[in-house]
Design a protein around this nucleic acid. Structure first.
Length: 491
RNA sequence: CGGGGUAUAGCGCAGCCCGGUAGCGCGCGUCGUUCGGGACGACGAGGUCGUGAGUUCAAAUCUCGCUACCCCGACCA
């Protein structure tokens, strides 16, 4: 097969970029740092979105929508929050253009300056809490469990398709609770929903933990996260869930009357995942032939390719193909019969491999004669000739097997690339030469964390939760430590 | 914002040093042969060489300015 993609061993970034573009997921747009999500990429996002939405609803959440624009003054009410996002905001300052007589075209009308500038949301805590203030008066109004599907803008210096773009699609949940305990439970529940989604649907094993102070969300008391390992040994934050304490309630004066008749501030959480998950999906499973999509998120689970000469042969094949297609669809499997006459079989094989379709069926004259069908699975690239009889039941179980196999592969990779370091030299050696996740003792200070980052580019991905505490010496400072943290270089 | 680079057909690039009528591969169109792993042949369409000035009989090529984009840092889901 002609080489279409850069190999991932050769240049991982280039491979990733090539793959995203050539598989038809997305491309760079004319707007700096923004991408165009193409139909195939968007179809994957829709699959993800639908499943996540079901999971949010199953945990009692409802969807709503809040404005894209946030008045500047809202933004500055929570001190840490403004500090965290100030450096990457897009700001609307005017509301009108006028004809530019000197240079032709148009210019910003200087007479149309807004009295108060509007920030294009980088996240919606402030506009939402300003709204919640009016929605919450009594404990009877709580809990308030709302999710929003939206786009946000963060003016990043450097961007990469899906992983970091100036504009991206995401969901953000924002909840309000009576008690601290209830809010903490909500934040933990949602990070677990994310983990379940990643593992069951994306076939992506993730670790759950807490962020260190330095990595914590701006304005949060505690940030829970899921972290995944990519095939180049770098970590990717795949989702976060924040316990916000009463920070936003106090900043936006959201108080309620409790059962006891006392005025109290509500307790809050927020949580989100973005189109970055598509990047995670690509980087975690794909190979040098293209994407490898887990069946549960593949827009097309089975593709049928006819092999024929002339229209008469195609007619015969189509009959069999459509019959199988119908049977598969009755089982809830999405099937595409690609009977386009404009492309040849070999071209189609390569194309669907590039797009990561889990199962490919080929039917030719030989198969019609023998009542067989050729089946190829994307994860292992194995081909076999099967009897047509019973093929749909076989495919049904095969899809589950592929889903499991992709997960196991990723899990094995993570296991093989996770280790523990007790000495600084050892730590540096692993980070620089091997990559992957490294557990190491840490004295818990932000200074040490920063120093380690400066020296090795490795950051604390998470602090494991619930693990038995274990005494040791900090990998860098040698000071007393009572637990290990998980380090890695990250996207 | 620091350091490096690039700008020539839809995409990827050569040509520039040494100025002289714009080239290659892929893709695209038509026709024919093909069709079980990205087919082959023939013919064809497509570019005022990022932009503005300068030097010159003559500029993709030399000089200066501007703009955009890419990579490496800092920032970050």
């Amino acid at each position: 097969m002609a080489k279409v993609l850069t190999s991932k061993e050769e240049n991982y970034s280039q491979w990733y970029n090539d793959l995203v573009i050539k598989a038809g997921l997305a491309e760079n747009s004319a707007v700096r740092g923004c991408m165009v999500i193409k139909p195939y990429g968007y179809a994957i996002w829709e699959k993800m979105r639908d499943q996540l939405d079901r999971m949010f609803k199953a945990t009692g959440h409802e969807n709503a929508y809040f404005p894209l624009f946030i008045p500047k003054s809202f933004f500055s009410k929570e001190a840490n929050h403004v500090e965290g996002f100030a450096k990457e905001c897009a700001i609307v300052t005017h509301y009108r253009l006028k004809k530019d007589d000197k240079n032709g075209g148009v210019e910003v009308d200087p007479d149309a300056a807004l009295e108060e500038e509007l920030i294009i949301r980088p996240t919606s805590e402030t506009i939402i809490w300003n709204t919640y203030k009016n929605w919450i008066q009594s404990y009877r109004d709580l809990p308030l469990l709302i999710n929003q599907w939206a786009n946000v803008v963060r003016w990043e210096m450097r961007t990469r398709l899906f992983l970091r773009t100036a504009e991206f699609l995401w969901q953000e949940g924002h909840t309000a609770h009576e008690t601290k305990q209830e809010a903490i439970e909500e934040a933990e529940r949602m990070v677990n929903v994310y983990a379940e989604f990643a593992e069951k649907y994306m076939a992506l094993p993730v670790l759950i933990g807490l962020k260190s102070e330095a990595e914590r969300f701006a304005g949060a008391v505690e940030t829970y996260c899921i972290e995944a390992l990519m095939q180049d040994g770098k970590a990717l934050q795949a989702g976060t869930s924040h316990f916000l304490g009463q920070n936003f309630a106090k900043a936006f004066d959201v108080q309620f009357t409790s059962k006891e008749g006392k005025l109290e501030y509500v307790w809050a959480t927020s949580w989100g995942v973005s189109t970055r998950l598509i990047g995670a999906l690509v980087m975690a499973h794909s190979d040098n032939n293209g994407l490898v999509l887990p069946p549960k998120l593949a827009p097309t689970q089975v593709v049928i390719i006819p092999i024929y000469k002339g229209p008469e042969q195609l007619d015969g094949i189509s009959e069999t193909a459509n019959h199988i297609k119908k049977q598969l669809e009755d089982k809830g499997i999405s099937v595409k019969f690609d009977n386009r006459d404009t492309h040849k079989p070999g071209w189609k094989f390569a194309e669907y491999e590039l797009k990561g379709v889990p199962v490919r069926l080929a039917i030719g004259p030989r198969d019609l004669e023998n009542n067989t069908i050729e089946l190829a699975r994307r994860d292992t690239l194995e081909k076999s000739v099967m009897p047509q009889e019973g093929i749909t039941g076989y495919i049904e179980t095969l899809l589950d097997e592929i889903q499991q196999n992709i997960y196991n592969k990723a899990l094995d990779f993570r296991t093989a690339n996770t280790c523990t370091a007790y000495k600084w030299e050892e730590f540096v050696d692993i980070i620089e030469n091997k990559g992957g996740f490294v557990y190491a003792h840490w004295d818990g200070t932000i200074d040490t964390e920063n120093k380690i980052k400066e020296l090795t580019k490795a950051t604390i991905r998470l602090i494991p939760m619930g693990d038995e505490k274990e005494k040791g010496k900090c990998i860098y400072s040698g000071k007393e430590s009572h637990r290990k943290a998980l380090f890695a270089r990250a996207y």
